[in-house]
């Protein structure tokens, strides 16, 4: 257990990441009030379990708590059944790799399309992409937070990006809609984990 002063410093330092916590919760819950509830609950838990913090990145630790609270809250509410039961095998990502080069530069006008596409992503994809692209978490940190193998994080990120690029490219390039030939590879670590840089 931390001593009192350390604990206080620790808790106050958590506040530095309140915007991160709220952003993640807001993208996962897609609702301001639900997100605020989740963040409050996450801070209560973070403080309660502060003694269990054993080094590593505190922000990633806090975000993992936020993520877990969001899942718990969603599990209590209606929409969950469809979200949690989402089957990656049944929803192969579209492949946007052959899209027109013009689609590469994503304009301000496409921000709205991106926002909608991001909100429309399955929860598992959305959390991976938000943690990676907005919060800069490593694959290892995302895998720990979501309690899945790193290979699954990789395939979720790849699928999420394919969908986002498709949503954006779909506006500027018809060729982006070309169906995917990519085989489903969500089976976890399909050998490619060995190519990743060593993490701890």
């Amino acid at each position: 257990m931390l001593n009192r002063d350390d604990a206080r410093k620790f808790h106050e330092s958590l506040l530095e990441w309140l915007d991160d916590a709220y952003n993640l919760a807001r993208w996962l819950m897609r609702d301001d009030h639900e997100a605020q509830d989740a963040v409050q609950e996450a801070f209560v838990r973070a403080i309660r379990f502060a003694g269990g913090f054993r080094g590593g990145d505190r922000r990633a630790w806090l975000l993992a708590i936020v993520r877990n609270v969001c899942y718990t809250q969603l599990a209590r509410s209606r929409a969950t059944a469809t979200t949690i039961m989402f089957d990656e095998e049944q929803h192969p990502g579209a492949n946007a790799t052959d899209s027109d080069p013009a689609a590469v530069a994503i304009s301000q006008n496409d921000r709205q399309a991106l926002l909608h596409a991001l909100e429309a992503l399955p929860m598992e994809y959305r959390e991976a992409i938000v943690m990676r692209e907005m919060h800069g978490l490593s694959y290892k940190e995302i895998a720990d937070a979501a309690d899945v193998p790193i290979g699954t994080v990789m395939s979720r990120l790849a699928r999420a990006r394919d969908r986002l690029l498709l949503a954006l490219g779909g506006r500027t390039s018809a060729s982006a809609a070309e169906p995917s030939a990519k085989p489903g590879d969500s089976s976890g670590n399909s050998g490619k984990g060995g190519r990743l840089r060593q993490v701890r």
């Binding site: 915007d19 916590a21 709220y22 952003n23 993208w27 997100a35 921000r111 926002l115 991001l118």
Partner: peptide
């Protein structure tokens, strides 16, 4: 695209 925590929170 990033949300900031509301002041009240």
């Amino acid at each position: 695209l990033q949300y900031s925590a509301p002041p009240a929170l």
